[in-house]
């Protein structure tokens, strides 16, 4: 067993886990089930979270690797009940259907817009190419990310204000 200390969505957490435990498994064991297991092979992106601000597949990162790091998941996207512009735009565009890929896509999109809120649609498509969605054809997702980016750009890149 190894001890891991991870700050998840701003909250310090500790666990003793077998060394083979992935970050995805640990997050879900902590009750943060928004992050999904879709393939467990790093191909589908349903488990995308931000590790120190960088998007990773939670299924490919060992929990021990995240020791001492800060992790952001979909559960931390809204602050004090205020939706993130991405969440607002996804809702307004009916971007999701079954919802399963949504948490991972939102986190990939957050990484993109945090760096470049003015990303073009082709840049958005490339940024989301690691996230599979079987329902939507991506169209309304791309539209929503572009709209959220425009809103964030108008607020100087800030997301919740």
């Amino acid at each position: 067993m190894i001890e891991v200390n991870i700050t998840v969505n701003g909250e310090a957490r500790t666990a003793e886990v077998p060394p083979e435990t992935t970050l995805l498994t640990l997050l879900r064991d902590w009750g943060l089930t928004g992050t999904k297991l879709g393939c467990d092979e790093g191909d589908c992106g349903a488990c995308t979270v931000l590790l120190d601000g960088m998007s990773v597949n939670g299924c490919l990162v060992l929990a021990g690797r995240a020791n001492g790091c800060s992790v952001s998941t979909v559960e931390g996207l809204s602050v004090d009940g205020r939706l993130h512009p991405l969440q607002e735009a996804f809702e307004q565009h009916a971007s999701l259907q079954c919802g399963f890929c949504g948490p991972g896509i939102l986190m990939s999109a957050k990484e993109l817009l945090d760096a470049n809120p003015s990303a073009s649609k082709s840049e958005i498509r490339i940024a989301l190419s690691g996230n599979l969605c079987r329902c939507t054809g991506y169209v309304k997702i791309i539209d929503a990310v572009a709209e959220a980016g425009a809103k964030m750009a108008a607020h100087g890149g800030q997301s919740n204000g």
Binding site: T33, G34, K36, V74, E91, A94, L96, G99
Partner: peptide
Amino acid sequence: DKRFITGKGRYTDD
């Protein structure tokens, strides 16, 4: 969508 965009969907594996 409120539950899907906030990670509060409840699927069987959850």
